[in-house]
Write a protein that binds this DNA or RNA. Structure first.
Lengths: 212, 212
DNA sequence: CGAGTGAGTGAACATGCGTACACTCAAATA
DNA sequence: TATTTGAGTGTACGCATGTTCACTCACTCG
């Protein structure tokens, strides 16, 4: 009846199994891609019999949707933290590069999942990711519009700029995910490239607004 | 013995079958992704018995590599044509947007294949695509370096800029591929967005060189 | 405490898969 | 013309898959 940390109730045990299925799927996806893995593989990796899978998800597609949701809640936490950080407005570029690399490194499975499944796999998973990325771009637009040069732009232009930013961040996130664990030199290199790219884009912003 | 157009020699027939296998794979990939399709599906779609597949490719991976090669030869022809076109230097942005949409529309299967399989599927196909994209970025760098503002940059910066350009073009190419056939309004919209994005990036180029 | 619920089990199934093998029979070659 | 070659065939195999069904038995709740 209590909901303490070491819960042994039925509901808590079910939740634990559900999570171990999701973790197993994330782990296997990392090596083969979500669309390539089978229900039986997931069940095996999760230490559960294939039929037990159905107690938690009605199909692999539903599992995929759950993973999309979980991954993007990580992503949203990232942008929320970034907005709270006072450095963000002082120097949005360095702060963004820093936060990007740090958070992605801490959540490789989730970001890897989004980056990988964004353009492949089942339609339902791909569409869910694209919808979430659109939402993410919309959120970033709200942040951008408060920046010095951008306040006066059309909302269409802001969206376009936010899209450029997000797609570039997703690309660099992919590289962080692909990075071998020990290589902090590669990490600095990626951070530096992300920084320079963002600077190029932001410089474009400035010129854009002064032109028109 | 002659090599006329309607060749019926053994070698010509073999080539025809090989091509029909590649076409079948491209068609099926469009709907399910290359990694999801089976050797037997490909053979069936090509109108050939499964074992005949092995007369032409030793595995699905080898088929995938052949498709990467064929797709990129299309891409390379595109950039070569763009360089020949005198308008390109006069107005690189409008010309690029125009060429991008036109050529991608004419080769949806190939561009779709590259866009889709770039981040998924078998390791060997993914790595081959990334290598080819690096080559493509290198080629574009050679074009960029001859533009007014860029001549004085470090080669590292040129590469970075070329990367921004190529990744954005790949993204817009994806959209053209995903576009329903009749929708020329969507086509103009994509072209317009590509143009504005490239302008933003290029404006960044100008400021970059005046700052640095 | 005693009945009922539902997470997890284990056997069974039809299906599609990759690949091995022995084959045919037209075109190429000698 | 007689022989060789090799693209395409047909059968057969063992294996992994998704889903079904009847089951157990610990936990929940009246």
């Amino acid at each position: 009846m209590t909901d303490s940390a070491l819960e042994t109730t039925r509901a808590a045990q079910k939740e634990r199994t559900r999570q171990s299925i999701m973790d197993a799927a994330l782990r296997l996806s990392h090596e083969q891609g979500f669309a390539q893995i089978s229900l039986r593989q997931v069940a095996r990796e999760a230490g559960v019999v294939p039929t037990a899978f159905y107690r938690h998800f009605e199909s692999m597609d539903q599992l995929g949707l759950a993973l999309v949701e979980q991954s993007f809640s990580t992503l949203r936490r990232m942008i929320r933290d970034a907005q709270r950080d006072p450095d963000t407005f002082a120097n949005i570029i360095d702060a963004s590069a820093e936060i990007l690399v740090r958070v992605v490194k801490q959540n490789k499975e989730h970001f890897g999942f989004v980056a990988r499944e964004r353009n492949s796999g089942s339609d339902v998973v791909r569409l869910a990711i694209h919808r979430e990325l659109e939402l993410f771009i919309a959120e970033l637009s709200v942040v951008l519009v408060r920046l010095p040069h951008i306040g006066s732009w059309s909302s269409d232009d802001v969206r376009l700029a936010a899209g450029l930013f997000v797609r570039n961040m997703v690309y660099r996130a992919e590289q962080v995910v692909a990075m071998p664990d020990g290589r902090t030199d590669r990490e600095e290199e990626i951070k530096d490239k992300a920084r320079r790219e963002m600077r190029m884009i932001v410089l474009g912003f400035e010129k854009w607004s002064s032109d028109g």
